[in-house]
């Protein structure tokens, strides 16, 4: 009794910090989303007009869909690239394992902008890739579509968020007992069958964890599309940014932010439900075996 009370007191700063720094701003945002703006004045009369405007606007609907579409695409692409990489680091690298993991994370220390500009140098009309292709004679004119296109955005997003997918998967592979694969092969499973029936199901928690991280970060990333996406670079997040800044329509910005938040929360609940319902819930909660 005494210790639990002490524990509660000790936890108080954490709860206060979460309440003040995380919950409160979101609640303020939520309140704003029901207000209206008239010229530069905020009218504090609750209304659902902002949400109705979002639902009625083709542009906003399209931007929201595009954000989640990008999130999904990048999650899938990073999963496909990251899966063998994570397997290799967890199961084949022994001595240099921490060095490999550090190497994986080093680009993250350089900051978003530096990495994005690095890609502009690579993909630009006079960039490394075009120059090289022209030098080899493969092309005569630089491929303009390499930069300032949706393709460029997706290449850079994949590059930026791949490490997070690899980390999630790496943890899942570390927890995977190799003897289970031996057991599968002992019972007659070939390599593909052992992968499908044992390795893949037991690493899905890693795919889900990595996928969720990548998904959220891609949905929230507006710098990358803005800097390498060209005309395609407008995102729902940059729209929110504009509404809070130049347009001075905080209520509408708040409403869009909350719409995104609600959809994300729903998606997460669905994912959690699927994982816990599936046979993987067992593997997730029981850890190793």
């Amino acid at each position: 009794m005494e210790t639990s009370r002490t524990g509660a007191w000790l936890a108080l700063p954490v709860y206060s910090a979460v309440a003040a720094l995380c919950v409160a701003p979101l609640l303020i945002l939520l309140a704003y989303s029901f207000f209206q703006v008239s010229f530069v004045e905020i009218i504090k009369e609750p209304t659902l007009k902002n949400y109705a405007r979002i639902a009625g606007s083709e542009t906003y609907r399209w931007l929201i869909l595009k954000a989640f579409g990008s999130g999904l695409t990048i999650s899938v692409v990073t999963a496909i690239i990251g899966y063998p990489v994570a397997w290799y680091i967890a199961k084949r690298v022994t001595v240099m394992k921490s060095a490999m993991l550090t190497l994986l994370l080093v680009p993250l220390y350089t900051g978003d902008l530096v990495r994005i500009f690095a890609w502009r140098m690579l993909l630009g009309a006079e960039g490394v890739l075009n120059t090289f292709l022209m030098w080899t004679g493969a092309i005569r004119e630089p491929i303009e579509a390499l930069l300032f296109s949706s393709l460029a955005t997706h290449i850079v997003l994949t590059y930026n968020y791949l490490p997070f997918m690899v980390l999630g998967l790496w943890l899942a592979f570390e927890a995977l007992d190799d003897r289970l694969l031996e057991a599968a092969s002992d019972l007659g499973a070939g390599k593909m069958s052992a992968f499908r029936r044992v390795m893949l199901p037991l690493t899905v928690p890693g795919l889900v964890a990595g996928g969720m991280m990548v998904f959220v970060m891609v949905v929230g990333d507006y710098l990358t599309p803005q800097l390498v996406g060209g005309a395609s670079g407008i995102t729902i997040v940059s729209a929110i940014n504009d509404l809070f800044g130049t347009a001075f329509d905080w209520p509408l910005g708040s409403a869009i932010a909350w719409t995104m938040l609600a959809i994300l929360a729903l998606l997460f609940c669905a994912a959690a439900l699927i994982v816990s319902r599936s046979t993987l819930g067992a593997a997730l909660t029981s850890g190793e075996a």
């Binding site: 003897r179 057991a183 037991l202 046979t279 993987l280 593997a283 075996a289």
Partner: peptide, 13 residues
Amino acid sequence: INTVFQNYALFPH
């Protein structure tokens, strides 16, 4: 040939 593994190696899923 089949094997009973040490610590069994049963498929947890």
